[in-house]
Amino acid sequence: MSATDNARILDRGYRQFDGQRLGIGSAIRSTAWQTTRSIFGLGRKARHKFFPMAILGITYLIVVIQLAAVFLFGQETAEFLTTNSWQQVAPGIVMILFAALVAPDAIVRDQKNGMFSLYMSTPLTKSTYLAAKSFSVAGSILLITFGPALLYLLGKTIKGLGPDGVGQWFETFARLSVACIVLSLFLCAFGLAFSCFTNRRAIASIVVLLAYLGTSVPSAILYDETNIGKNILLINPIETAYEFGARICNSPSIVDNYGEITTTFIALGFFGWFLASSLILLFTYQKREAI
């Protein structure tokens, strides 16, 4: 064997690409993945990982502790702690904190570092760009909605405290999945809609939190102090979405006073807020200059 038989070309240099170009699906997938990496600080310094990982860790830790108690102390503890998996979905304030953290990271950064212009010079359009960002943000939020709830459902099932029978188990699983997806999409739309007005990430996070406070506080005051009626609570977007999830899961109301509102109004309130958030986002981006 001569020395050249094992020779390899190590530096191929620049060359033309003769293969098949992947379509818009690949562009969306790549953008969504890159955004998710950015949200969780992957490939970045440790300080960028801290907050998202901390929230993620806390939500799972709570479930793990509860499951440990259930495994150690049995049914009574399980019933004392929770009644079903929907209640393992993180509380609204944790949700909104997480949404206020990840949504600005997904879109505000692109405005500031010029990536938005670059994305617009690729096959991505404003709509497909927002779709990619939404996949990433909703997917990230799903990790703290669906993840802990599923973990709890599985834990209880293993312990023999889950839903009765295979049929009921799958029904519970399906309801939980739909509710978590719906809630994640909602939080994603809400978070993106209120963080798209600025190119400063911290300000965007504050705007999202203020939008939450600006709706939740007045709704509670108006409900308590006036005779407008229970439907006034629907102006609180996060708790309306939370309650909508509870209705999908056939779970008791977690939020005070929402139990009195009919499911039709809860659904109307939910879809109204979802539509409004989506329209704010789309309209803002439609007017935004790409270059």
């Binding site: 690409f17 170009r21 992947l22 790549s30 570092n113 010029g114 990536m115 670059l118 994305y119 010079s121």
Partner: peptide, 30 residues
Amino acid sequence: VSYGPERNILPDEMPAVDFVKHLAEVRGIP
């Protein structure tokens, strides 16, 4: 086609190779 913007602002924390790779993928390269 491709575009190189006027502004010199790019994602600061991203290694150059990741940045170039990502945009090549978005433009349809496997």
